[in-house]
Amino acid sequence: MSNRERSIMSSFDFKKGSVQIGYSIMLLALLVLAVTMLYPFATTIFSSFKTNQEIFSFPPTLFPHQFQWSNYAEGFKYVDFIRPLWNTLILFGGNAVISLMIVSLAAFSLSQMKLPFRKGVTLFFMSTLMIPSATYMIPSFLNLQSLGLIDSYWAFWLPAGASAFNIMLLRSFFDGINKELFEAGRLDGASEIRCFYRLAVPMSIPVFSTLLIFSFTSTWNDWYWPSLVLTSPEKYPLASVVYRNIIQSFNLTWNVKFSVLTAIMVPPLLFFLFFQKNIMHGLNLSGVKG
């Protein structure tokens, strides 16, 4: 105990009775919290294997009596999985490439290069954060319409670069790199482009991966805007298809619904568990910089 770092309480506090009682109550509360957090996952996943009778059985069961895999086969009749998945990946790929390029170039320029009106330009980007999306959501739709981008993936790829938050995040990262590194590069005859992609980009791989993760989750989650901008359902990403065919449907049985929900919940969960370190790092980054 002595060699660990203390937190609010020291090991000395634990000798007091009142602290012990308080601490156990706290542990109990956290346990309850953990159960509430995990229970919806458990029902969704386990119910996807149950028969519909078992879901409504009383007293309720958590584990299925027998695994009914046919729920999944049934579910995929309503959501043809492959095509929407492919659409989602195309959307994500374009979003990631274009937004990373636009955002990182701008952030590098703001942070490390000679610029006129730097304050004005920064304000031009950052003030968009102050404007609620309610103000420009409808006009944005009309704007895409007049640009002829309705029903095209460009309507997602290009605006993905217009993210003041990402510029802010990357800029604060670039600010942390020593300016002399780039000065040295320039003195050795490296062009600005070379400085950018041979020095800045390799150094910011961790931040890039954080941004990629954010972009993946938002693309995977977004169901409303795609269903508005894309007019042909065969271009829909997975989330929009599921919303249309599963959430809004009233004649599907619960076990079939759960099978589809489980199927689209698992990839982001695996993704998260896999990239957990980077995601937590990114959260800290955004939390500190605000």
Binding site: T44, D222, W223, A239, I247, L261, I264, P268
Partner: peptide, 14 residues
């Protein structure tokens, strides 16, 4: 991490 549509489905059931 749960996608919004899964959240809706879950809570529709809960």
């Amino acid at each position: 991490i749960v996608p919004a549509v899964v959240l809706y489905g879950m809570w529709q059931w809960l």
